[in-house]
Design a protein around this nucleic acid. Structure first.
Lengths: 221, 221
DNA sequence: GTATCGACTATACTATACGATTAGCCAAGG
DNA sequence: CCTTGGCTAATCGTATAGTATAGTCGATAC
């Protein structure tokens, strides 16, 4: 009778989301060690689902594990790492944007448009409000992920999402400087326009410019 | 108990290796469901480390999980997936080969040379012996991984290893057709030669030719 | 500095319990 | 007869608690 979508979600999955959220938002600082016993008491679940969640979180790069020594939140990024991450993004993201531009649908464009608008709204706040930063990276993430999904190649998407957590570390890194949210907004618009026009080459170029721009704004501080 | 061998390595890590090995070698067939209780009895460990190992194995793509329904070995690849995987590899691997060619060291070249020789030896067997197939994909894997590591960008390497398990599924797919091991051998040599010469452009091109070749040999069957 | 001690913690096993899935069976309806 | 639907029981994933073992790490003593 009641809809079947109300199937209970395993606690391990819930803990995955909770912890991911906390790492993404910076609620648990870089390098902080994660005591499973303490987490168990704090989140009021047993250790079993926590261990499972942490094991799955390892591949996001937001948490690191050392055998017999436990888990810890990934440390702050170095400048070299930021540059290496940019290189990796410069290889993947223009390609993803290019493919997405070739496979646009009305629904996709509508969704992307939504994330774009949300990004603009949050970008205006990210420079002033601390709470706005949360909304900012969330919509930034959604924008890039939506494009990656539309590229239609699950393997490329998989390779990109392997970087997803790292890109979030990149964003958190920028939190402690001045955010470039206001400058990123027009770049997102340019990407959207190129994709909406179905111009694959322009989409790739706009994405390249955006990734370079974001990195240089950060490193230039 | 009476077992005196002080295992320095956590059982969860050992199980990860054991299961990975079994998935890689095809010992557990595509689509086969993995009963944790049965695995526990079969491997003579409790369910705790098994759950942890399986959770970590999920990101390799060799095993899939459905909430409340358990784990299963990833199903056979479709032809479309093979092509999509090739696209992803064509984006990443030439770049990795290019970067590796720019950062060669004596030690790296010696290691790569070893994997190359081993590949040649095993390629000769892979067409005749079934046991040779195991050695074949193992040295193929090592060859590509060694190059990816030498590229010196941990994020690119991360993106590539996110595909690692999928590439293994690709190899297993080929097991049931004729293997192109003999044809792949000279391609590996060409890649090695270009890298050893420090010719980044040629290395990228050789890698591109190899990945295309391997895929087309498989799809052409 | 090195060695040892002890607290803390990761790891592992066992037993137990609950709930969801699934397969098999049976009955009603075509 | 075959299909459809629902009930039941077995199976299995998930979760908890308690306990045991062993490795890590800081502190203390030599």
């Amino acid at each position: 009778m009641s809809d079947r979508t109300t199937t209970k979600r395993p606690i391990a999955d819930q803990m995955y989301d909770v912890l991911l959220q906390q790492f993404m938002s910076g609620a648990r600082g870089p390098g902080q060690s994660l005591n499973i016993g303490a987490l168990s008491r704090e989140l009021d679940v047993s250790q079993t689902p926590l261990r499972e969640a942490l094991a799955r979180l390892e591949h996001t790069g937001l948490v690191e594990r050392e055998a017999l020594r436990g888990y810890r939140v990934a440390p702050m990024m170095t400048r070299v790492e930021v540059q290496q991450l940019m290189e990796a993004r410069l290889l993947l993201e223009p390609k993803l944007a290019e493919q997405a531009a070739l496979r646009t649908t009305d629904e996709f464009l509508a969704t992307l448009r939504e994330t774009l608008d949300e990004f603009h709204r949050s970008a205006a706040l990210a420079d002033v409000e601390t709470e706005g930063f949360d909304m900012y990276w969330r919509s930034d993430d959604r924008f890039h992920m939506t494009i990656a999904a539309q590229a239609g190649n699950p393997f490329l998407q998989m390779a990109y999402s392997a970087l997803g957590g790292q890109i979030q570390r990149f964003r958190l890194f920028s939190k402690f400087g001045r955010t470039g949210a206001r400058l990123a907004a027009p770049e997102h618009t340019a990407i959207y326009d190129a994709i909406a026009a179905g111009d694959a080459t322009a989409a790739a170029e706009a994405m390249r410019a955006h990734v370079s721009g974001a990195t240089e704004r950060l490193l230039g501080e």
